[in-house]
Structures are given as C-alpha cells and as structure tokens.
C-alpha cells in the first residue's frame, strides 16, 4: 500500500523557501581539523543549517575524504542530543557508524553544485556510542559540522 500525504504531516515538517534565500552562515569559529586528506581544494557547500537554533554550540567541524573517526564522547558530555550535518561529493554513500551499526548516512552527490545538505539529530540517551566512524569511499570528499544545544 502506498500512502501519499500532502502538506505537513505527523512528525514531519516541510520547508520551502524562496529561491535565492539560502543562508550561508559564518560558523562560530569551531575547531577545524582535516580528515585523512585535505579537501580544501574542493568547494563543498557549507553544511551548517540555516535554521541553527539560537544558542547552539558547534562541537566540531571537519573537512576530509574517505574514512575518518569523529569522537564526540567528551565533546557531547551533558548534552541531550547532537546534530550532525554534512555534504558529500563522490560515489556511493557516506555512513556514520557507531558500535558497528549505521546510525545515519546518505548518498554522495556527483558534484558539489548538486550536493544536498544531509543531517540528523541523534538523542544521546539512545546512542550506544559517541565514537563514530565515517565510512565512505576513499576519493569521496566530505564536510561536516556537529552541533548541540
């Protein structure tokens, strides 16, 4: 059975903004580190969401390519949830894996101009581990930002 719902339904929200209104906020100077290789030459979009809640704290922001580790165990201490947003350019998917299971992930776009900003908010209470593995093909370029609050 296929169900199609129009408009805003249940727990889902839909945002349609006018063209040209995409916000590219300046990030509040988070610590920036590189992954296994620098992707600074790749003009990836800023993954920071335009509707970042006031008071949000940027825990980490990273550029990289291929596999990497993001350990939020200390950084996210005392938080109820963490939000991660990323863009990925390349082939296949980018997965965020904790304790051997995919917590969230998404497809990588063919080009930075065509990349979507993917993201997810993970409740700390249900997270088995906050030491996440970024798993994606070696040539894939990514940029992510983790926020809390």
């Amino acid at each position: 059975m296929i169900r199609r719902l129009a408009g805003i339904v249940g727990t889902a929200s839909l945002v349609v903004a006018a063209a040209g209104c995409t916000s590219h906020q300046a990030n509040p100077s988070p610590a920036t580190r590189s992954g296994t290789a620098s992707a600074s030459a790749v003009p990836l979009p800023n993954p920071s969401p335009s509707n970042l809640p006031v008071g949000s704290k940027v825990l980490i922001q990273r550029d990289g390519s291929g596999n990497a580790t993001v350990d939020l165990t200390t950084l996210a201490a005392g938080q109820n949830s963490v939000s991660i947003h990323w863009v990925c350019v390349g082939k296949g998917n980018l997965n965020l894996v904790a304790a051997g299971k995919v917590v969230l992930g998404g497809g990588c776009a063919d080009s930075s101009a065509d990349a979507t900003i993917d993201g997810g908010t993970v409740p700390i209470a249900t997270a088995k581990s906050l030491s996440w593995q970024i798993q994606t093909a070696a040539p894939n370029k990514w940029r992510l930002i983790v926020t809390a609050g």
Binding site: P45, N93, L104, G105, T116, G119, G120
Partner: peptide
C-alpha cells in the same frame, strides 16, 4: 515516489533526519 539515492539521507529509529536541497539541484 521516485527518489534519487544520492539525494537520500537515512538513519536509525529515533534519529531526526534532515535534508536540504538548494535551488538548481
């Protein structure tokens, strides 16, 4: 519903997924 795998985000139960596509995507 036809979706593009490269424009899909997925996650475990309890995770609030989000996706944003700029004009021209």
């Amino acid at each position: 519903f036809v979706r593009d795998a490269s424009k899909t985000v997925y996650g475990q139960p309890g995770v609030t997924l989000s996706i944003s596509a700029a004009s021209g995507t």
